[in-house]
């Protein structure tokens, strides 16, 4: 091995050492800041998802109570939709944000809800309920 090669090697090694030194510290700081950034997004998403699910739960609760005191108040078709929504809501894995079924169940819930509201001719949405156009493209 000649001395030039040695010098070159050591220079490359030194660069790698410097790079590694920076990388390790950056990584450690990135873990902290990335976790916090992610947490902030999670707080918003979790609240919104929870709100929407609780909203459906509350509506279904009242509709079921109404059916109990007056079984003929809603048509058979609407009653069937309500019980289907109820099943979907029970299936929703609310505490598993990474579960792959959440988007499908949420889509079905929204469709059923919209159909029920249209049949009953009521407007129940709140300020912040995802608009039909938002459903296609949610961005933060």
């Amino acid at each position: 091995m000649d001395s030039n090669g040695d010098m070159f090697d050591s220079a490359v090694n030194l660069e790698q050492t410097h790079y590694k030194e920076g990388h390790e510290e950056g990584y450690a700081n990135g873990l902290v800041s990335g976790k916090e950034e992610g947490r902030q997004v999670g707080l918003k998403t979790g609240f919104e998802v929870g709100e929407e699910l609780g909203f459906y739960r509350g509506c279904i609760g009242i509709w079921n109570s109404a059916i109990r005191v007056d079984p003929n108040h809603f048509s058979v078709r609407v009653q069937k939709s309500i019980s289907q929504m109820n099943e979907l809501l029970k299936k929703y894995p609310i505490s598993e944000p990474e579960n792959e079924s959440v988007s499908d169940i949420m889509d079905s819930l929204r469709l059923k809800f919209r159909a029920i509201c249209a049949t009953l001719n009521v407007k129940l949405e709140y300020n912040g309920y995802p608009k039909a156009s938002d459903v296609e493209n949610i961005e933060f």
Binding site: K35, G38, Q40, G42, E51, G54, Y56, P97
Partner: peptide
């Protein structure tokens, strides 16, 4: 580092807020 921890942070935040949102949603519903 950010890429590695963002999902973790998201899950933590999600679980912190989901029940507060849920309870408000119930009142709305």
């Amino acid at each position: 580092g950010q890429e590695a921890s963002a999902q973790d942070g998201f899950n933590i935040g999600f679980k912190q807020s989901v029940s507060a949102g849920y309870n408000l949603g119930i009142v709305r519903g």
